[in-house]
């Protein structure tokens, strides 16, 4: 268990700096898009992509272009993001399966095998889940958690809330450290007896809470002594909103709307049929 806790602590530290899945630092030389613009585009992408009717799988697949292009642009490995987006699968696959059973109306046949509407809906649910998770992961992984919290603050979120987002994240490592110390102490005195008796669980959770609260109060006192007054200070040097951010936002909105409302796949298929 202590190994798992060490791994979790390392993972949390990586999230803070945005080091996961990033290729070297080529992205730092390229002009960076304001994170606020990227957050707004991601939200618009999700709304437009998820409004595609569930039986139009082909139309949905074109929307995979957004995470692929964004990954290339921000220097994040798309393979890494795609692999991590698989975590959503167990949750959506189990519910998507019911569409296969309930919607058995045939839609087309491939070489004698009849494909039902339910199958199209099933894959559609899977693609929706994967693409929405990818868009979200890309938003955070490219710049790191701190930068995202600052962007949220500049988007107008109350400072009480953004401070809480940062605090929660930082105190998680504190809690894991206290848990690590409890686990280590238990291992040192248990001499091979592995499992903790169920009747002791309550005491351990209570002890962990009290220890972490005590430690956090000492840290808080130190922060107050150094001038912290309950809010994270705003950035001194902020990246201003530039023309390229406006262009980025407008361009993606246009492209996504065109894909959604002009049905390009149907048009291409009709064109081929005419030829």
């Amino acid at each position: 268990m202590s190994e798992q806790l060490h791994r979790m602590l390392a993972r949390l530290a990586n999230f803070e700096s945005g080091a996961i899945g990033n290729q070297n630092d080529t992205r730092k030389q390229a002009p960076r898009i304001d994170l606020r613009a990227r957050a707004i585009v991601s939200l618009i992408y999700l709304i437009i992509m998820l409004s595609v009717p569930i039986n139009r799988l082909s139309e949905l697949l074109i929307f995979a272009a957004f995470p692929i292009i964004t990954a290339a642009q921000t220097g994040v490995r798309y393979g890494c993001i795609a692999r991590q987006s698989l975590i959503a699968l167990p949750f959506v696959a189990v519910i998507g399966v019911f569409n296969i059973f309930y919607n058995r109306e045939p839609i087309f046949a491939i070489g004698g095998v009849i494909i039902a509407v339910g199958w199209i809906e099933f894959f559609s649910i899977i693609v929706r889940a994967m693409l929405s998770v990818q868009a979200l992961l890309l938003l955070v992984r490219a710049e790191g958690y701190n930068a995202l919290c600052r962007a949220l603050r500049r988007l107008g979120l109350p400072s009480v809330f953004t401070t809480q987002l940062l605090m929660l994240y930082r105190y998680t490592s504190l809690l894991l450290e206290q848990l690590l110390s409890l686990v280590r102490a238990r291992q040192a005195r248990s001499f091979g007896r592995r499992a903790l008796p169920v009747r002791d669980w309550g005491a351990v959770i209570g002890e962990l809470t009290v220890r972490t609260v005590d430690r956090s109060e000492r840290i808080s006192q130190a922060m107050w002594a150094r001038g912290f007054r309950g809010r994270m200070p705003d950035e001194q040097q902020v990246q201003r909103w530039q023309w390229r951010d406006t262009i980025y936002l407008t361009a993606w909105c246009l492209v996504l709307s065109v894909i959604r409302f002009t049905h390009p796949v149907e048009r291409i298929v009709t064109l081929f049929n005419k030829l």
Partner: peptide, 12 residues
């Protein structure tokens, strides 16, 4: 205490 307490309880 509310700021550190919110952070710690949130982490828990």
């Amino acid at each position: 205490r509310i700021v550190p307490l919110m952070g710690v309880m949130g982490a828990l």
